[in-house]
């Protein structure tokens, strides 16, 4: 039992990070139909800026705030300079643009920071916490709590505020949203900024556990994208479920089946689920209109 709990908590922690990245994918996808492969770079920026700011003597909470602001600025610039000018291009062209942005951001980070791995101290000490025989890093609770808070805030924002409803309207139909007077360009910029913030928060929360470097983004984007698709693209709840499920699959697979084929196990499950449910777990069924 303690072994299962140990694996379960590890999987949940890893999965929570995937969930945040997947949430970032979803937010941008909903507002603009763009799949943003530079999403992982926001995670990297969150971690790296915090590391370098706190190394410069800035207290951790302020450093984290700076990191989030930097990521948001980068997200907005990405939208204004690369995505907005390419409006109307095919979906795959825009994916290539975001891949270009990912290469560019990595290239910039290796110059602005360095190519070493870095860590942050755990927010509340290194001592593990004992839960029914499993020892859990205290930072895991920060990650889980942070993810839950981010999801809650996003939910309240989307469902209860006027701007949030405008985002939902834009995602439902851009034309209709524009007709009722919503400035869809602003909404899309907002989505990029918000998504960058979520990514950066994920990066800050997880760096004490996973360490960070200028090129952690690629792996994060890959796993986050997989999680978003697993849950059903465009569904925020699906993103969270998909992320947690992917993390659990990986860890339980490594613990009970084979650590060598750990990543394979997760992707086999994704393929099986997609074959059975071509729209992901919680995706909407789409109908071709002619």
């Amino acid at each position: 039992m303690s072994e299962f709990l140990q694996l379960f908590f590890s999987g949940l922690t890893v999965g929570a990070v995937y969930a945040l990245v997947a949430l970032g994918f979803t937010l941008i996808y909903n507002a603009s139909d763009v799949v943003n492969f530079a999403q992982g770079e926001f995670v990297m920026l969150g971690g790296m800026v915090t590391v370098f700011a706190s190394a410069a003597g800035i207290p951790l909470p302020v450093a984290a705030l700076i990191a989030v602001s930097v990521a948001v600025a980068v997200g907005l610039l990405l939208y204004w300079l690369a995505i907005a000018p390419a409006r109307g291009a095919s979906a795959v062209s825009i994916i290539i643009i975001t891949i270009g942005a990912s290469i560019l951001l990595k290239g910039a980070a290796q110059i602005a920071f360095d190519k070493q791995f870095h860590r942050l101290p755990a927010f509340s000490g290194d001592a593990p916490i004992d839960v029914l025989g499993a020892s859990i890093q205290s930072q895991s609770f920060w990650v889980l709590g942070g993810t839950a808070t981010a999801v809650l805030i996003l939910y309240v924002f989307l469902e209860k505020t006027l701007v949030g409803k405008a985002v939902l309207a834009t995602s439902a139909s851009r034309l209709a949203a524009r007709l009722v007077g919503i400035n869809t360009a602003t909404i899309m910029a907002l989505a990029f900024g918000g998504s960058a913030a979520i990514g950066a928060i994920a990066g800050i929360l997880v760096t004490p556990i996973t360490l960070t470097s200028y090129d952690v983004g690629t792996m994060m984007a890959l796993k986050g994208f997989a999680a978003a698709m697993l849950g059903g693209m465009g569904n925020p709840l699906g993103a969270v479920v998909g992320g947690l499920l992917l993390g659990l699959l990986e860890t339980l697979g490594a613990g009970y089946v084979s650590s060598t084929y750990k990543d394979g196990f997760a992707f086999v499950m994704i393929l099986v689920i997609l074959f059975a449910m071509p729209q992901g777990l919680l995706g909407r069924r789409t109908v071709d209109r002619v």
């Binding site: 072994e3 694996l7 590890s10 556990i209 996973t210 792996m219 490594a254 613990g255 650590s259 990543d263």
Partner: peptide, 20 residues
């Protein structure tokens, strides 16, 4: 005899196996 991927961020699963 356990393994982990070069980009893995959590090895508690493999270590738990070794521990047991």
């Amino acid at each position: 005899d356990e393994t982990y991927g070069p980009r893995d961020t959590d090895m508690t699963a493999q270590l738990t196996k070794i521990k047991n």
